[in-house]
């Protein structure tokens, strides 16, 4: 494992911790898209079906468990916690995420590394992760003002993707048989979706003003 991959994983972990911190400390999930969170939980459940069949490393196994548990806990909290669920911006979170689900699954049936149950679900999780942030970005754009923790949550998610791209570039030049087009192309698409957000995040950071996205 190279330093870029590890940094990416740590950014991913940090984004989840920031989100948990926001929900627990403020007892509020305003500005957070439940649809995006549901999609992420599904991404991890579909991708880590290999938890029981393929062992890579203790690090991988622990991280997989952490991602599954934390993402389902966030969804559970937003739906079931008496206090937290009251702050959910339901009327703003109207993105049709079932469309993303159907499109990702259809693509996974067509483009996969092998036509097996696990490989189809793996490809599905890669495609779904690439677009799962869309409901969140749409919600932020609709609500206009973005609170600090929510902004940082999306920032760390984007940083995670950026480091994974550096990781692939590094692996491409250092490994002899590096070919993972499905993950790389989907990853590029996913990172591109953050470009706009990063631009406004940078502007607000530079001017030391509150993050605001144009309508």
């Amino acid at each position: 494992m190279n330093i870029f991959r590890f940094a990416g994983d740590m950014m991913h972990l940090t984004s989840i911790l920031v989100l948990l911190l926001k929900i627990y400390a403020t007892k509020s999930c305003s500005g957070i898209s439940l649809k995006t969170q549901e999609l992420y939980a599904l991404v991890f459940l579909a991708r880590y079906l290999d938890l029981f069949t393929d062992f890579i490393s203790v690090y991988n196994t622990i991280m997989k468990l952490v991602f599954i548990v934390s993402s389902t806990a966030i969804v559970w909290c937003m739906k079931r916690d008496r206090v937290v669920r009251r702050s959910y911006d339901k009327q703003l979170d109207t993105f049709r995420h079932y469309f993303l689900l159907a499109a990702s699954f259809a693509l996974a049936l067509l483009v996969n590394e092998k036509f097996t149950f696990q490989e189809i679900f793996w490809a599905f999780s890669i495609y779904l992760e690439a677009v799962a942030i869309l409901p969140q970005l749409v919600l932020l754009q609709r609500s206009g003002n973005v609170d600090n923790l929510t902004g940082q949550y999306v920032f760390f998610l984007g940083a995670y993707r950026a480091f994974y791209i550096l990781n692939w570039i590094y692996r491409y030049f250092t490994e002899t048989h590096f070919s993972r087009w499905i993950a790389c192309i989907s990853g590029l698409v996913q990172t591109a979706l953050y470009a706009d957000f990063f631009y406004y995040y940078y502007i607000s950071w530079k001017n030391n003003t509150k993050l605001k996205l144009p309508a």
Partner: peptide
């Protein structure tokens, strides 16, 4: 057949 890429990333 072609070997499937090992999914060693998260």
């Amino acid at each position: 057949g072609a070997a499937v890429t090992e999914h060693d990333e998260l």
